[in-house]
């Protein structure tokens, strides 16, 4: 591994290289005191450099020579963990089905679609559903709602919360006969209270809030869902340097992924659509370009099929590509319930 990839400051790197330490392996057997003497820096500083170097070389040598690497997990353990992992229901059986039970915790899920298809509605729904108590098959968590567009409707959130509560009570009623489960003492207002709402007005604020989330969540441990509505808006306006945009976006995606893993919460990113020219014709495509499309673990596209809303799994490491009609009504109104359509890619 080259010295240039070592994350130390430029002047320290220059000193290292001029003192003859051109590769990481050359640092592996040197003591902090020798290094300090060679580079004419303090012992502490030398110690820091060696710490960084040993950390980097551990990351670099993933050639399988070590049977047990620090921080790794066996696939078997991961499977076990995945089975225990909670999912947030979308309140739509068919959509839950193709998602394998709902929106996964520990993963970043991107949901995109044309204006008016219901991205914000789905976002609000998830922010409510994550709060369903554990006894009722939910996560009993809190939600962070990051609104970049100003389209969050608090009245709507209240309506969704009321409907969700009704559903819980209904479920409670049917179960109580058997188990004598205690009465739910939740109010729709409680759902709203557990929704942390950030209103973001520029792309730099968007980056700031995502940087800050780590601290915020470690103070509010029961946050189980982060919803960003939408990731696109500010990055679509007056951005001239596209390379910078890509760098910032991918940095953001990495941080979100880290958050999802660290606090085992679900990150849901809503995205807009744009038109893209390919193979001789224009098609709709999710915005922010090709490199962004790698950023999320799962990608779901909502689209119109006639007068019906459908969801399509565009990308997922574990689920097969499928489409299903979404947004069936709670009352299972014949007009609103559809049958599942599966297709193999």
């Amino acid at each position: 591994m080259e010295m240039s990839r070592l994350p130390v400051s430029a002047s320290q790197r220059a000193k290292l290289i001029s003192a003859g330490y051109t590769s990481l392996s050359s640092l592996s057997s040197v003591s902090p005191f020798d290094l300090a003497r060679d580079l004419k820096i303090s012992d502490n500083e030398a110690h820091e450099i060696l710490k960084v170097a040993s950390h980097s070389s551990r990351l670099g040598s993933s050639d399988g020579s070590h049977a047990i690497v620090h921080g790794a997990q066996t696939a078997w353990d991961m499977l076990h963990e995945e089975e225990l992992l909670a999912r947030i229901t979308t309140s739509c059986a068919d959509l839950d089905n193709i998602l394998g039970g709902g929106i996964n915790c520990k993963e970043v899920t991107e949901i995109g679609g044309v204006p008016g298809i219901g991205k914000t509605q789905l976002g609000i729904q998830l922010a409510v559903n994550v709060q369903i108590p554990v006894n009722y098959g939910g996560l009993g968590g809190k939600a962070i709602y990051i609104d970049t567009e100003g389209s969050f409707m608090v009245e709507r959130a209240l309506q969704v919360a009321k409907a969700c509560l009704e559903d819980i009570l209904e479920y409670n009623g049917s179960v109580r006969k058997k188990f004598q489960v205690c009465e739910v003492k939740m109010q729709p207002e409680d759902f709203l209270e557990n929704m942390f709402y950030f209103r973001i007005c520029s792309y730099s604020e968007q980056i700031a809030v995502i940087n800050y989330l780590e601290k915020f969540i470690s103070e509010n441990k029961d946050v189980k869902a982060v919803i960003i509505d939408s990731v696109t808006f500010h990055f679509r306006q007056d951005f001239e340097d596209m390379a910078l945009r890509t760098r910032l976006l991918s940095g953001m995606a990495l941080k979100l992924m880290k958050l999802a893993k660290k606090f085992s919460l679900a990150v849901v990113i809503l995205n807009q659509v744009t038109t893209k020219y390919s193979e001789g014709s224009f098609h709709l495509n999710l915005a922010l370009g090709d490199s962004w499309s790698h950023a999320c673990t799962n990608r779901v596209i909502l689209y119109w099929n006639g007068n019906e809303r459908y969801a399509y799994i565009d990308k997922s490491p574990s689920l097969r590509s499928a489409s299903a009609p979404v947004f069936c009504d709670r009352e299972r109104d014949p007009e609103f319930s559809f049958k599942l359509v599966n297709e193999s890619k």
Binding site: I144, V154, Y197, F198, C201, E205, A208, V209, Y212, K215
Partner: peptide, 16 residues
């Protein structure tokens, strides 16, 4: 810097 630049949150309830 992020913490300071980040706007304060509100709960949806206080918003309502």
């Amino acid at each position: 810097i992020s913490e300071i630049a980040c706007p304060a949150y509100q709960t949806a309830l206080s918003l309502l």
